[in-house]
Design a protein around this nucleic acid. Structure first.
Length: 486
RNA sequence: GGCCCCGUCGUCCAGCCCGGUCCAGGACACCGGCUUUUCACGCCGGCGACACGGGUUCAAAUCCCGUCGGGGUCACCA
């Protein structure tokens, strides 16, 4: 195989899409497995919807998640420019060339006529296709339309007979996907504003940029014969095609932001680790050797083969992503985790040296996302614990017995000099015996008093981190709360 | 509706190409247990699928045909 060259071709419309990263991941795994190159091309031919901000967001998001490219608008390359809006003249020239060779034609039909025609055809239950009104206009007719100032589009003249087929790297087990030409529409190549459609720009660029393998989502299979026909019209050799399964919503429809988070920014902002997201995306269609579930990008690159990619469209399972994210969080070193946590903490919350390290250590195995930092640590950073007094009363305890227990505990803790986890736990267990209480009873009361919640990080570690004064203050507050109930 | 793709536990994936080792394996979720000061982590166990019907064969999840189901696509959007 000559040098493998693949491209990612996102459109800068809206938020950076998880599907872009998904396809990009497979592009990259395949290319790097073969020592090939990855191109990033911005497909901004839709002037209405494309924006510069969206383009920037794509770079940022792709870099964040770990997708890399060798050539692109931001880093240049031998086939620049890589932004389609800067290549208009190229597409126009190529479209004109096809008109001259007779493979394409000018069409002067108005959007209104087209819409009416489509409606009528749908009523007759036949697939809506262009009726070919302008397919065989004479040179004179074309000229008079042009003279009248009409802005035509250029359409591909698809043969009425025969079939067009291609072999997909992923589906049909190597058998060809076959389309009857009569089902293929005379696709618009150049819009009346002089901009190309996806089909033209895509084919021209892929050829000019020497792309050898087109990896894209399954939604494009029906366009593939149009593209093959276009290559043929130009006299070019088409690339190989790999159509990836479509990511789906829980209701099985194509993934959409209404039903599932699709923005890469959302995953970053909600505390997902990029390496976990990437691993998860890889799991949607790719299976590593020996059934490995957790593996790095390097592993995927090393083991990559189209044979290991599935055909069926997976449903995006947030539960599994959360689990994966949790295991990745647990694999981080404390220092690394602290750094990752910064965007999710307020200023100063992670700058207490040893204390911070201890705090992060006890929440590490509890967090599913970085965004849960606050959920597990809020009580360290406030002295206003808002809980109901009844929470202090453990099973088989009453407000009275709880108050009595606390009355014994407070002076005991006050007397502690060595305010460490070990010493505190020793004392705690001693107090249980002295009071004739079960460990879970007394500790629950203490836990609620200190953390404000029945679910919290380990009690004595938390107490050590918080310090003696604050803990005692909280125990006293608990006593007051209980009195108010009684 | 036409065309195209797909169809193994609720979900993701292995097995299918090269039929027997599969009364189908792993993971998430769920349920139960152990551990345990709560929650969580960890460990153990359970639940649970070859869409259906024909064929071919000594033998089919694996090959063939049909049916059904799901998705995608039919724009001067990509």
């Amino acid at each position: 195989m000559s040098e493998v060259r693949v491209r990612m071709a996102p459109s800068p419309t809206g938020d950076p899409h998880v599907g872009t990263a998904y396809i990009g991941l497979f592009d990259m795994a395949f290319a790097r497995h073969h020592g090939g190159k990855c191109v990033l091309r911005i497909e901004d031919t839709d002037r209405e919807r494309s924006s510069k901000e969206s383009e920037e967001a794509i770079y940022r998001a792709l870099r964040w998640v770990g997708i890399q490219w060798d050539e692109g608008p931001d880093c240049g390359g031998p086939y620049a420019p890589y932004r389609q809006s800067e290549r208009s003249h190229i597409y126009k020239r190529h479209a004109l060339q096809l008109v001259e060779s007779g493979a394409a034609y000018y069409c002067f039909c108005t959007v209104e006529r087209l819409a009416r025609m489509r409606q009528a055809m749908q009523k007759r239950k036949s697939p809506p296709m262009y009726d070919g009104k302008c397919r065989n206009l004479s040179a004179d007719e074309v000229q008079s339309h042009l003279d009248a100032g009409e802005r035509p589009v250029i359409r591909l003249k698809v043969p009425k007979e025969g079939e067009t087929a291609y072999t997909d790297l992923i589906r049909k087990r190597g058998q060809q996907v076959v389309f009857q030409n009569r089902h293929i529409d005379d696709q618009v190549l150049l819009k009346s504003d002089g901009f190309p459609t996806y089909h033209l720009a895509n084919v021209v660029d892929d050829h000019l940029m020497k792309i050898t393998h087109v990896v894209r989502a399954e939604e494009w299979v029906n366009s593939t014969p149009k593209h093959i026909l276009l290559y043929k019209a130009f006299g070019w050799e088409p690339p190989a095609y790999a159509h990836m399964p479509l990511l789906r919503n829980p209701d099985k429809s194509k993934i959409s932001k209404r039903k599932n988070p699709t923005s890469l920014d959302w995953y970053r902002q909600n505390g997902y680790l990029p390496e976990a997201l990437l691993n998860f995306l890889a799991l949607m269609g790719f299976s590593a050797e020996k059934g490995k579930e957790i593996f790095s990008l390097e592993t995927m690159i090393r083991e990559f083969s189209w044979d290991r990619v599935t055909t069926s469209a997976p449903i995006f399972d947030m539960k599994k992503l959360e689990w994966l994210n949790g295991t990745y969080i647990r694999q981080l070193s404390i220092d690394e985790l602290i750094e990752r946590l910064r965007p999710f903490a307020s200023v100063g919350q992670l700058d207490q040296g040893e204390k911070t390290a201890k705090m992060v250590a006890i929440i590490q195995e509890r967090m599913k996302t970085l965004a849960e930092f606050d959920k597990w640590t809020w009580f360290f950073f406030t002295d206003e614990l808002d809980y109901g007094a009844e929470l202090l009363v453990a099973k088989k305890m009453t407000p009275e017995t709880t108050a009595e227990a606390l009355a014994t505990c407070v002076p005991a803790f006050k007397a502690v000099d060595d305010w460490t986890t070990e010493a505190l736990e020793r004392l705690g267990r001693e107090l249980c015996e002295r009071l004739g209480l079960k460990v879970r009873q007394l500790f629950m009361t203490l836990r609620v008093a200190v953390t404000g919640s029945a679910k919290s990080p380990p009690l004595f570690e938390s107490m050590e981190i918080m310090g003696k004064d604050r803990c005692l203050a909280r125990l006293e507050t608990a006593q007051v709360k209980l009195e108010q109930v009684n």
